[in-house]
Design a protein around this nucleic acid. Structure first.
Lengths: 155, 155
DNA sequence: CTTGTGTGGTTGCATCATAAAACCAAATGG
DNA sequence: CCATTTGGTTTTATGATGCAACCACACAAG
């Protein structure tokens, strides 16, 4: 089989997240969902993608627990696609991608929008990584350790 | 043409970043590079991917200014692939992906490693988004504004 | 100089995923 | 009821992926 390699069993959390949202469209669908988009046709209009792959992606996102289908919410008998807490938890990923573009894009003048603090209308600061005690950490200040064995179940 | 849709001209910074690193392998290559991997064969061994697509991905990453080829560095006459500043700038994206897995993965016990503060050996805190004045921001505290027109060129 | 071996790729298929468009059924809407 | 919109599925063509085979070069031994 030449099957597209799956990262499902991989022990790396980055690979595991890519398994769920590492394709071309998923993060854009999530972006729209965070903006309040819920309906199939609305996703299709905003993203301009083919309906068959939108259908496949939505199903995949539901399977991964990122979206869930709700029966109605406004009058019509159609169903909607809503973000789960896991889905809303992708927000920092989207912010990180956005800030990376804002900082390094070759043509930043083509970027249409900036993320701002709603209260003051000023751009948000770059995402910060901190230690438990609050110290600001750079990449070099971090390292990887093997995950400690779970204590909940001994054998 | 059925060409795989390109986000190159898109005004959304998230789409633009996905254009560069939104495929299955690029972020994993960058992850290895952040770990110090430099050589073709080393990437191939660690990631277990086909050599032709590794070749294509490395070229794409070089074209996007994320990697650069350095002539040698150790004795051998082969070239190496090094991260540029733009490449190292993806670190928060990888951290965000990792933390998302750590928080929401269905089988967290399968995750092998955790990211820790090198000094204390304790897990790093979740990425924080802050306003210019330092206030901690939730997603709901933010909004998008149109990018102000560049002042450098009036017309 | 010749042979051998490892590195760093490219080239050929076979297969999978994606995309566009056609199609279709149920739900509205007049 | 008939027409249109919504929310998809099916069909078909093409691009991307994956494996294996091949190849060029460097380097070392004989």
């Amino acid at each position: 089989m030449v099957k597209r390699t799956s990262f499902e069993g991989d022990a790396c959390p980055i690979a595991r997240s890519l398994e769920a949202i590492g394709d071309w469209w998923s993060l854009l669908i999530i972006r729209e969902a965070l903006f309040g988009v819920r309906r199939f046709g609305e996703f299709q209009n905003k993203l301009g993608m083919a309906k068959n792959i939108l259908s496949a992606r939505l199903r995949s996102l539901v399977d991964h627990g990122i979206l869930e289908t709700a029966p109605a919410s406004d009058g019509s008998a159609y169903s909607e696609y809503l973000l789960t807490p896991k889905g809303r938890g992708t927000f920092p990923i989207l912010v990180a991608l956005r800030q990376w573009s804002e900082e390094f894009d070759e043509h930043p003048e083509e970027i249409a929008t900036i993320l701002v603090d709603r209260e003051k209308g000023r751009p948000v600061k770059k995402l910060e990584m901190r230690a438990e005690d609050g110290r600001l950490l750079s990449p070099a200040d971090t390292t990887l350790k093997p995950r400690p064995a779970s204590r909940r179940r001994s054998a």
